[in-house]
Design a protein around this nucleic acid. Structure first.
Lengths: 127, 127, 127, 127
DNA sequence: GTGGTCTAGACCACC
DNA sequence: GTGGTCTAGACCACG
């Protein structure tokens, strides 16, 4: 199942983000084995070097660790994964609010805009 | 005053965004003349080619227009600028919510996260 | 002038270490431009990708920063470079002492061993 | 009790080093029998192949010898073990000083750095 | 010209 | 089999 990637962001970052999100959503759990570099390369329709880079980055972020000859594994430290969730939430909210403020929207406008859009989505699904 | 730019996004996009925001915030008004390409290049500490690209993009977005021999001017169509404001707001909110949902946060968590961060900022400034 | 590298450590780490040491020794100064990736690749007799990796690591360590279209530059923050010097000193001393202690040498033996070897070197040169 | 190993150095070298140190510290004595390859593999939480390699290396260094049907034994030559101690000390001190000099530290700085760190450790333990 | 990303294919040590 | 490093060569956007 080869994947499609958008062109504005490096592929390795897109795969990294996808994996982080799967971890945060609980689809990948503490201690889980990741597909081998070569497997993941085929799954993603990408060169093994690119996957290698992703896994190295995951290790640097202390989200995964490589065990030689065995494979790459999500850290067993569940606290680390909980921190990752908070961290991603915080980063995304922070950068969104900074952007909105930069563009000249007041805190009230920001909050209201988010609330409206969430309601839209809900009713959109409901109907 | 030469500026600093981050490396993850093209400089021309950063300048473009800055100009859009100045327009939306009302710092630059309908009909205003923009600095010449050369002036803006010096102001921003950037290559004239880069500014040229920004102005071309502003024109494509119908936010500014070049008048031969006179320079570049923000459109006089105030409705266009009001639409720009709504459009930027909508785009930013939409992509933020999509990202948060993708990462596995519930609508409640999203709204609450935004509310908290806005309060943080307010009290932070207050102190 | 192509270089020789030892086999026990990755080439990119050897180049990284060499550059760090040149910075610490003051042979490369704050704000200096590094050779371009391609130049350095030729200088070092190594593939450009390998140099790229070194420069990326230098950036992650906040020792250098890349400016698009211009080249890579040592940070202008001299404090950062002073901290680098202390950091390298500390790391090397710490890991040495930990190793020696692990091998069963007493603090007195360690200090004495270092002193003797330093005197040896000095008289060795003097003679 | 399975062990943890770092990833930067081969596991077999880490085990080898650990055994050398136990010998030098006198925890393992001349003539002592080493655990069988299988026992050691289980003790260390490691593949028997890896232990095999360690024992072969110990034999090459004339620190241990395999006796067919009986197992592996530390050499009974106590002089050999004393020489091993000196050799390890010498190697470690030498490479440390060479590294520090390479990084641009003067002999005085090196000695002082070691002295300080040793005092730190002592007071650290004392508190 | 510059840095950055990606592919294809190779080799290595380790388990 | 695994992860990790390296080369050769390509392409891209940016300045």
């Amino acid at each position: 199942m080869s994947q499609t990637f958008n062109n504005t962001q490096p592929i390795y970052l897109q795969i990294l983000q996808r994996l982080c999100r799967q971890v945060v959503r609980g689809e990948i759990k503490a201690g889980d084995k990741l597909p081998s570099v070569r497997e993941m390369a085929i799954l993603s329709g990408v060169n093994p070097n690119t996957v290698q880079r992703v896994y190295a980055e995951l290790e640097r972020l202390e989200i995964a660790e490589a065990r030689r000859g065995l494979g790459s594994f999500i850290t067993e430290d569940e606290n680390r994964l909980r921190r990752l969730r908070k961290q991603l939430k915080n980063e995304q909210v922070e950068s969104f609010i900074a952007d909105m403020a930069e563009t000249g929207f007041s805190p009230e406008e920001i909050l209201e805009g988010v609330r409206e859009k969430l309601l839209d989505n809900k009713s959109g699904r409901g109907v």
